[in-house]
């Protein structure tokens, strides 16, 4: 995390910050639109909080930004009707589970800083933030609904995320899309239990 630690400052992504900064340009128009027009509404409605790193040498320069919210991965292993009577003995809590998770709603690196390892530093920072012993709530997974583009998927795979649905077809079915519909995003997760802190 050398670059973010030594050359940048971590800040809330606020209206004042947007006004006093150069516009934040990533290589993705949806992401630019989100950080210019939508993210403050998510903050106001307490639906997602946005943060960024600015450059210390020129704090009008936003290097990277992300939006996070509380969510959970809920699983229902309740069998279908045909099998249900056989499984009456399985306690309800074993059929429904919910794992606390933090959802990355958006994440982007300024295009002038792309492909220099900053995205990976940012992800290491987010992972560290949520396994820190000072973290106020339990959080087992990081989940992201990644743009279904080569660069974004490569980025999350490189950072050891896995697909929540193993195939696009499964994900489309789950989202109620037909085969011919385009899947714009893919859900991916990272299991924070794989990270340890030595005392």
């Amino acid at each position: 995390m050398d670059f973010l630690e030594s050359k940048c400052s971590f800040k809330n992504f606020t209206e004042e910050l947007i006004k006093s900064s150069n516009s934040f340009e990533c290589d993705n128009s949806d992401l630019n639109d989100f950080f210019q027009n939508d993210c403050l509404n998510y903050s106001k409605d307490l639906l997602g909080k946005s943060y960024c790193f600015t450059l210390d040498d020129d704090d009008t320069n936003i290097v990277c930004a992300f939006t996070i919210s509380n969510d959970s991965i809920k699983v229902n292993t309740l069998p279908n009707n045909r099998k249900r009577h056989i499984n009456k003995s399985i306690p309800r809590q074993k059929q429904f589970k919910s794992y606390p998770a933090v959802l990355i709603g958006r994440l982007g690196v300024n295009k002038n800083f792309g492909r220099q390892g900053i995205g990976t530093e940012l992800m290491d920072f987010i992972k560290s933030w949520f396994i820190d012993k000072d973290n106020k709530t339990g959080c087992r997974f990081i989940v992201v609904d990644s743009y279904n583009t080569k660069e974004a998927l490569n980025y999350y795979l490189k950072n050891n995320f896995h697909f929540l649905f193993s195939t696009e077809l499964q994900e489309k079915e789950h989202m109620g899309l037909t085969i011919s519909n385009e899947l714009k995003t893919r859900l991916m997760f990272f299991d924070l239990i794989n990270l340890g802190i030595e005392n």
Binding site: L47, V75, N76, R106, K184, I193
Partner: peptide, 27 residues
């Protein structure tokens, strides 16, 4: 307006089972 942030959907059937197995093994 940018794409709405989607909540994480409930996993069912085979995706639920494989997720629980993965989470239990990792624990």
């Amino acid at each position: 307006m940018a794409i709405t942030i989607k909540n994480i959907p409930v996993l069912n059937n085979s995706s639920a089972k494989s997720f629980v197995v993965m989470a239990d093994n990792a624990s």
